[in-house]
Design a protein around this nucleic acid. Structure first.
Length: 876
RNA sequence: GGGCGAUUAGCUCAGUUGGUUAGAGCGCUCCCCUCACACGGGAGAGGUCAAAGGUUCGAGUCCUUUAUCGCCCACCA
């Protein structure tokens, strides 16, 4: 058997074998956790996009989640990790459209239904990639409870949520200023606009005054000259002495030759530019608001794909930036361009496709956020939801305080279609009667389709074309995946979830919205069906009770960055493929490396050194275990069977006492273990993954390998049966505890080694075993102190040997002296270990101080140690 | 324009509520392929904790200012 253990840890075969076994045997099914503590631990996976594959950021996130999930499971909590995928509206549609484009097809050519079929087909083909990767990387999810945001159950949850909010007046439809992506041809939310600081140009344009002599102009600055085609006013500050006399007069809009009013509004900054602002209510959020105040006309001059429309007169049909050029050129020719200057300003771009976003007036669906944000704020403030690290809590609260309505409609085809019908006759909006779904071609859609307009009786009803923002369904994830709106057993048992771990980059997109939706929609009140009475019932505002929060704790993990500190990007080729790193170094090493760098609050920059160190650690663990198994032969020769020294019930009774001397190292290693367990528990309870890792590392490498194994080696091959038995029992018990301690971060390696120890019949996985819990007799402050003293003696001896450059192959004589009787006793009792580890031939224990004649003396507060050179010094 | 964070050994980073000689990994120097492991063992060198001031018996840790870098939010044309 020993020969079968390779000298170096080779993770590939082991990891693949266990990943497969864990999945096939459903080891991580919630029902399989020991559930002995009476506690429940539940957590939802932040659903990755179906478009993607696992990147290093996922790996970090999944490692952290998995560590806590495995830890809780081992501690005896009924443990559930719900996995799943997000349909990722824009992202997925974008990918499929791009594929179609290669065939020269546009989605409009196919029509909505056929396009959706194509996306489903694509999803079926490549959507499973992440699942396979997660399984391979050891994520201990309950795959029997996997979900997808567009599956029928979750579709129904989305309809239910929409309808409730709609009936409560929190979802409304209207014509407002939105961020429009001309590339994606859809509205996007404020959060999806990414601002980039750019040096652009600012143009100063002359607007003639109506009825004034030629040559009299007002000069107006703009960074988007093409929008002037839609200008419907100029504005000045009401108290601006320069322009007071012009208020109420008219100006002539150049190029369009339209008379526009000059209005007064305190929004105008007198200091900026000339103090005169062109007002384009259809294409600027401020102008839109100002326009409402002054009843200005709203002229939309742009098409959905970013071209100038008929309202743009001679410029109709031009692409927006081409139009800009033409407008500027024409102004110049007319002598109406006063000047052009460089100007640094923030340009909004589409998070998805990077196109420059156009503020545009458009009819969209919105969700009113203030009433939803208030309970969320209270819940966070009161600590009902704990947010860590603390600075993220501040950021979240600030955002909730300044929240604005959320544009939830998207002009896409891939997503949850809005369950509202429009009457062709009277424009009345008729929502679905309830949230039921029907399955058509295997996929869900709203089932309770209205057939008659309640207002005009018309029967020509058409469903709203828009779908919901992907994040709308994500916002329901922690409860929709547990069966909401039905009051299922899972919902009763596992909701609220215990924790959410996500990157801080989606704090607003997702985490905050889950809190708001969770507080508003979930909780004990729902009855199962939807319908008018439920909505009425729901209108009694729910207090922010603990029952309704989606998770009790929220931890925002760091982001993994490239060496120069920028965000990893697949398109830039700076992304790191975790599967490749796994092939190279092993999953456990990668996991350990990520976890050991996971200090809360700071981003992670990958380094090759760290992962090499992690691989070395895995190898070290492997070899420590290998040492025991290889040496088993020696005691088997004494007629001692593995079962006698390593059976689970034997291990459970450690430490085993020694009749005579030689028991100190054993008392010490279990005392250390007790301390380490406490430290690791504390670290993991507070998301201090790096601290947990470092503690275990130091224990395993420093204490267990460097000292304990070395110290007890002779005992293991002792001819005294009692000594050998006790030593072996202790060392196996300590190894077993160490493996269980290590398991959350290095699941594969520990699983493999655990199975090489005798286990109770039917024991399936270390993951279902218990996390080490110190027995009462492990704690032993005296053992720690005594061992420290002995370690100092050994270190002093080695140090001197090294400094004197003594021949390492030669043992040397030493003398030892101490004023403390306890230390003297220790040294006497452990003389053998001191000789061996200090490479000493003898250790004479002497009263009184030592002199350095014929050697060298090292002293500290407790003792003097003298090395006698003898002929070992000849080497120098 | 607001807000947040960072600046600690050559490199990558720890250092929770202020308290004895500031830690780790990698790298470096010296020695050792000793019967688990060279992905190893042993012993070392290396830091005015960005700068200046302040609070304190005592500060890497708290306060102020400055410098450099990074991130987030934001409707100044």
């Amino acid at each position: 058997m020993p020969q079968e253990i390779p000298k170096a840890y080779e993770p590939q075969e082991i990891e693949e074998r266990w990943a497969k076994a864990w999945f096939e045997e459903q080891v991580f099914r919630a029902e399989n956790s020991r559930a002995s503590s009476g506690e429940t631990f539940s957590i939802a996976l932040p659903p990755p996009n179906v478009t993607g594959s696992i990147h290093i950021g996922h790996m970090l996130e999944h490692t952290q989640i998995d560590m806590l999930v495995r830890w809780h499971r081992m501690r005896g909590d009924r443990t559930l990790w719900v996995p799943g995928m997000d349909h990722a509206g824009i992202a997925t549609q974008f990918v499929v459209e791009r594929m179609l484009a290669k065939e020269g097809i546009k989605r409009q050519d196919l029509g909505r239904e056929e396009f959706e079929r194509r996306v489903w087909k694509w999803k079926a083909e490549s959507g499973g990639a992440i699942k396979g990767q997660m399984i391979r990387l050891g994520a201990s999810c309950d795959w029997t409870r996997e979900h997808f945001t567009l599956e029928p159950k979750l579709y129904r949850a989305v309809l239910e949520a929409f309808l409730r909010l709609y009936h409560e007046g929190l979802i409304y439809r209207g014509r407002y200023m939105v961020n429009w992506c001309p590339r994606c041809q859809t509205a996007i939310s404020d959060l999806e606009v990414v601002h980039h600081e750019r040096t652009g140009e600012i143009w100063n344009i002359r607007y003639a005054l109506a009825g004034a002599p030629a040559g009299q102009f007002l000069v107006v600055a703009t960074t988007r000259p093409e929008t002037m085609l839609g200008d419907t006013a100029l504005a000045v500050h009401p108290e601006d002495e320069r322009y007071k006399h012009l208020i109420g007069k008219k100006a002539i809009l150049p190029l369009m030759n339209r008379e526009i009013p000059i209005v007064a509004d305190s929004y105008v900054d007198r200091e900026f530019g000339t103090g005169v602002v062109k007002i384009t209510p259809a294409h600027d959020p401020n102008d839109f608001e100002l326009g409402k105040r002054h009843n200005l006309a709203v002229i939309d001059v742009m098409t959905p794909d970013g071209h100038i429309n008929e309202a743009g007169g001679a410029y109709a049909g031009l692409e927006r930036f081409a139009a800009r050029g033409r407008v500027v050129k024409d102004l110049q020719e007319l002598g109406l361009l006063e000047s052009v200057k460089e100007h640094a300003h923030a340009v909004g771009t589409c998070d998805r496709c990077k196109a420059i976003v156009e503020p545009r007036i458009s009819t969209q669906w919105f969700c009113k956020m203030k009433p939803l944000a208030e309970p969320a704020r209270e819940a966070v403030l009161a600590g009902v939801i704990e947010v860590a690290p603390p600075n993220q809590r501040t950021i979240l609260l600030n955002w909730l305080d300044n929240i604005r309505d959320w544009c939830i409609s998207r002009q896409l085809w891939w997503g949850h279609r809005i369950p509202v019908w429009h009457c062709a006759g009277c424009q009345e909006m008729i929502p679905a009667a309830d949230s039921r779904v029907e399955i058509v071609e295997g996929h869900a859609r709203a089932a309770s389709v209205p057939t008659k307009c309640p207002k005009c009786g018309g029967t020509k009803l058409e469903q709203d074309q828009d779908v919901l923002d992907t994040w709308f369904s994500s916002a329901l994830w922690p409860f929709s995946t547990l069966g909401w709106p039905d009051n299922t057993d899972d919902l009763k048992h596992f909701y609220p979830t215990s924790l959410l771990i996500s990157g801080y980059d989606i704090l607003f997109f997702w985490d905050a919205r889950m809190i708001m939706m969770g507080l508003h929609l979930s909780g004990a009140r729902f009855a199962g069906n939807s319908g008018a009475e439920i909505h009425a019932q729901r209108n009694a505002a729910a207090p922010a009770t603990e029952n309704t929060i989606p998770f009790r704790r929220l931890y925002l993990h760091s982001l993994v960055r490239t060496a120069d500190g920028s965000k990893m990007s697949k398109t830039k080729g700076t992304g790191v493929d975790p599967l490749q790193l796994t092939q190279q170094y092993g999953t456990d090493a990668l996991r350990y490396m990520l976890a050991s760098m996971s200090a809360p609050g700071t981003d992670i920059i990958l380094s090759d050194d760290r992962i090499l160190g992690a691989r070395a650690f895995a190898n070290k663990i492997w070899n420590a275990a290998r040492f025991l198994f290889v040496n088993l032969e020696k005691i088997e020769a004494q007629g001692i069977a593995l079962e006698e020294i390593a059976a689970p019930e034997i291990r459970a009774r450690a430490p085993y006492a020694f009749a005579g001397e030689g028991g100190l190292a054993h008392r010490w290693i279990f005392a250390r273990l007790a301390g380490v367990c406490a430290q690791v528990n504390d670290a993991l309870a507070n998301f201090r993954f790096h601290e947990a890792c470092q503690t275990i590392y130091h224990f395993f490498w420093g204490d267990f390998c460097d000292w304990y194994i070395e110290w007890v080696k002779p005992q293991l091959s002792s001819s005294d049966r009692e000594t050998a038995l006790a030593a072996w029992r202790n060392i196996f018990a300590a190894l077993d505890a160490a493996l269980r301690l290590l398991h959350p971060v290095m699941p594969f390696l520990t699983e493999e080694l655990w199975h090489r120890l005798p286990q109770a019949s039917g024991a399936r996985s270390i993951a279902l075993d218990a996390f080490p819990e110190p027995r009462a007799n492990w704690t032993d402050a005296a053992a720690i102190e005594e061992m420290n003293a002995l370690q100092e003696i050994v270190t002093a001896a080695r140090n001197m040997r090294s400094e004197m450059k003594l021949d390492p192959k030669r043992k040397v004589a030493a003398e030892f002296s101490t004023a403390e009787p306890a230390v003297r006793k220790l040294a006497t009792e452990n003389r053998d270990a001191l000789l061996r580890l200090g490479a000493l031939s003898s250790l004479e224990i002497i009263s009184g101080r030592l002199n350095s004649e014929g050697g060298a003396v090292r002293s500290n507060a407790q003792f003097d140690l003298k090395i006698i050179f003898g002929d070992a010094a000849d080497k120098t």
